[in-house]
Computed example of a mutant assay.
Amino acid sequence: MNVNANYSVSNTSGKEYLKVNTDDEKNQKFELTQISDGYKAKAINKTAKADDGLGSFGLQKRK
């Protein structure tokens, strides 16, 4: 899937978070968990879980 978005990553109390703004939904928030080949991004707010939001997804390391 291709998505045009602006994003930022932050670290709070030892946890990593991803904030994403797309054309359809602003202020989508995800908790990042490192997995063997990248990260799992778990949707943690209403905007990210909305029909036009990204929902939970995985991020793979570039090869």
Rank of each mutant, 00 (worst) to 15 (best):
M1I: 15
M1N: 04
M1D: 15
N2D: 06
V3E: 08
V3P: 09
V3S: 09
N4K: 14
N4M: 03
N4R: 14
A5L: 08
N6G: 03
Y7S: 14
Y7N: 03
S8M: 04
S8W: 00
S8N: 11
S8R: 08
V9Y: 00
S10K: 13
N11F: 02
N11D: 10
T12A: 12
T12M: 09
T12P: 00
S13T: 13
G14R: 10
G14N: 07
G14S: 07
E16N: 04
E16K: 13
E16H: 03
Y17H: 01
L18C: 01
L18N: 01
L18W: 05
L18K: 01
L18V: 03
K19N: 04
V20A: 01
V20M: 03
V20H: 03
D23P: 00
D24C: 03
D24I: 03
E25I: 05
K26Y: 09
K26W: 04
K26Q: 03
N27S: 14
Q28F: 02
K29V: 02
K29Q: 13
K29H: 15
K29D: 06
K29W: 15
K29Y: 09
F30S: 04
F30R: 06
F30G: 08
E31T: 05
E31M: 13
L32V: 06
L32I: 06
L32F: 05
T33L: 03
T33F: 04
Q34Y: 00
Q34R: 07
I35F: 01
I35K: 13
I35W: 00
I35L: 03
S36K: 10
G38L: 14
G38Q: 14
G38Y: 07
G38K: 04
G38A: 11
G38H: 15
Y39W: 12
K40V: 08
K40S: 08
A41Q: 15
A41E: 10
A41P: 12
A41R: 14
K42F: 02
K42P: 08
K42V: 06
A43Q: 12
I44P: 04
I44M: 08
N45A: 09
K46H: 08
K46D: 15
K46S: 12
A48V: 05
A48H: 08
K49F: 00
A50R: 11
A50H: 13
A50P: 00
A50C: 02
A50Y: 06
D51I: 09
D51H: 13
D51Q: 10
D52Q: 13
L54E: 07
L54A: 15
L54F: 08
G55P: 05
G55F: 05
F57C: 11
G58N: 14
G58V: 07
L59G: 02
L59T: 12
Q60L: 13
Q60G: 15
Q60V: 09
K61E: 09
K61P: 02
K61F: 15
K61I: 10
K61S: 08
R62H: 12
R62G: 12
K63N: 13
K63R: 14
